[in-house]
Every structure is written in structure tokens, then in C-alpha cells.
Design a protein around this nucleic acid. Sequence first.
DNA 1: CTGAAATGACCGATGTAGCGGTCTCAAAGA
DNA 2: TCTTTGAGACCGCTACATCGGTCATTTCAG
Lengths: 111, 111
Amino acid sequence: MAEHVRTYSRTTREALALLGRAIRLARKQRKMTEADLAARVGIARSTLQLIEKGQPRVEIGLAFEAAALLGVPLFVDEPSRLAPEVSRLDDKLALLPQSIRRPRKETRDDF
Amino acid sequence: MAEHVRTYSRTTREALALLGRAIRLARKQRKMTEADLAARVGIARSTLQLIEKGQPRVEIGLAFEAAALLGVPLFVDEPSRLAPEVSRLDDKLALLPQSIRRPRKETRDDF
DNA sequence: CTGAAATGACCGATGTAGCGGTCTCAAAGA
DNA sequence: TCTTTGAGACCGCTACATCGGTCATTTCAG
């Protein structure tokens, strides 16, 4: 019952690699060892190694936490811009129907 | 031995919220239901719900995969810019020492 | 209006990620 | 040089995330 041979798109793999590299770079620029950073984030050193390697199966919260602690930008240049951006998306979401209706499932196969 | 009451920084929480909202918005703009997108990504609907809610403990690979499938930008405007950016960081990393040496652990507490 | 469908919430089983440990190797500092 | 220590790799245990259901509620299309 293994069957966890999940595949990831190229974009996902590269985005993960980028995040991992950014974390490693920021860590070294701040002269922190793996053990240092791991302790700061509150995770095991082995887990940090997986994050820096860009492994897909780490918890997103742990990876983001490491990035945030080092000042690696997450989606926006400045953390202070995150909240407004969330609000902006909420506004756009409010304009859309809350539940999406498939227009007609047999739009094409009803002949 | 539970004690997994992990805390996350404000930045992490907001970044997760932003990613989740962006995914939900993109999904609705493309008129896809939760079940649709989950099937496409190859995950359970319940997992997608956690991702859209911005839960910290989901696998980063699954969240990125959903975003990538919808065209939600991950760190760069265009997916094609990911690889060059990774290379750029690799170059910068090559200039730094491979192992970071704490200069002197008691830089501050040696008096 | 009305009912089919989408969403939100919840749950038990099970595969697995994180932990923390060890060992080896490399490299940086004295 | 030599030796300390950061980093890479691996491993077993355990808590927990994912899965895939169910049920209730909301909501849009006809």
C-alpha cells in the first residue's frame, strides 16, 4: 500500500529549489550554522537540511518559518505588505460566487 | 509526548493565508470546484481545503503543486524565471564558505 | 422555488514526516 | 600542519497529515 510515488511539476520542483537556496544563502550570509538556525526555528537539523534541499514533503509552515526568520521575502518584498494583499484577495473573492457551478457537465458530450 | 503546539510567526501565518487565498481565487476564476482541482492535483478534497485555509502543516509540495497548476506565481512572475534564479543563488553560494564557523561562540558573554 | 451540487466540517485508519541520534568526511581556523 | 566542528547522510520511533469517507448547510441554475 505504499503508492506514494507522487510526482511534482517542474515549476513546483524549481520553486522549492529556489526557496531552499534562498534560505541557505541567507543563513550563510548571517553566519549561522545549520544547528543554529534549526534551534532558532525550533526544528531538527535534519529537517532544516530537507528544507534547504527543496524536498517537497516538508511542512510548509516550517519552511516559511525558516524563511521568515532570515528575512527571505515570501511573495512580497516586505512582510508588512502581506496583510493588505490578503485583504485585497478577500475583496476579489467576495465578488465571485461562493460556490462554483459546473455550467453544464455535458456541454460537449450530449449529442 | 504530544507537545506539538508549534507557534508560527505572523509573517508565516500571513504568507500562508496569502497563498491559500491566491489559490482559491485562481480556482474560482477558472470555474473549478474543489473536487475538480483536488483531482487534478492528485490530492484529497479535504487536503485542498486545508491548503486554501492556509494551514501550516500541509506538505509544501502539495500546496505549490496546486498553485503551479493554476498559474499562481511562486516567487517570480513567470515560471521560466525560476531556473535562472536558482542558478544565480548557486553562484552566490559558491562565493561563500561551505561551512560556517562560529567566530567565537562567546562573542558577547565573555566578560 | 426547488433540488442538485458545492462547500464546510468532521472522523478513523494508515502511511509517513519530523525528531534526535550517530557516524563520516571535509574544511576552516589556530 | 593538525584538530575542531560544520555539514552530509542515514536510521528507528512516534506523533500526525493525508486520505476518503460522511453529513449538514449553503447556494446557485433551471
